[in-house]
């Protein structure tokens, strides 16, 4: 983590305390999590107390206080995907990544999450890997998608 990057993000938002969430979102986008030194820097520059930053950072699910893997795998557990076997897809992902929902493996390769609907129910069962939607999946295809991740 480079302080220059953090300072750049803060300055892009005119060091404005009300831009706290936007700044945190950008840090999250950059590093896929919110490193503690970055939060301290944000607090120092914006004159926002650490308790407030921690409250905001733990309130929204978009933020992570622990490092995330290089690949985000979201498995849809919505109704349509559920009836088309989302639990089997989840099982396959768990077997392949070695971690369950809300977890990240030791090599920081995969972060697995379950979500409740991605919005393309006709394609169920659906997973979203790094923003790309994979639909009408079988167990074998799911494993294939994960294998193609470096």
């Amino acid at each position: 983590m480079e302080m220059k990057t953090i300072d750049g993000i803060i300055e892009r938002h005119q060091v404005e305390p009300s831009a706290l969430i936007q700044i945190l979102l950008e840090i999250q986008r950059e590093y896929h999590w919110l490193p503690q030194p970055a939060l301290h820097e944000v607090g120092r520059r914006l004159q926002v107390p650490m308790s407030r930053i921690q409250h905001v950072a733990t309130f929204y699910k978009a933020f992570s206080m622990v490092p995330k893997g290089r690949h985000r795998v979201n498995i849809c557990m919505g109704t349509a995907c559920h009836v088309r076997g989302a639990s089997r897809i989840l099982e396959t992902v768990q077997e392949h990544a070695g971690v369950g929902p809300g977890e990240t493996d030791l090599e920081h390769k995969f972060s697995v999450e379950t979500v409740n609907c991605i919005g393309c129910c006709a394609l169920g069962p659906v997973i979203d890997v790094n923003g790309k939607i994979h639909g009408r999946l079988t167990r074998a295809e799911t494993a294939g998608v994960l294998e193609r991740c470096e």
Binding site: P49, M50, S51, R52, Q54, H55, T58, F59
Partner: peptide, 25 residues
């Protein structure tokens, strides 16, 4: 009290909903 009267912000809330709790920095 810590934020408004003492002004130290030593304790805050974390998380939300049923998981919300107080936490000291």
């Amino acid at each position: 009290y810590c934020a408004e009267v003492v002004g130290k912000h030593a304790v805050g809330f974390i998380d939300r909903g049923i998981r919300k709790e107080i936490s000291f920095i």
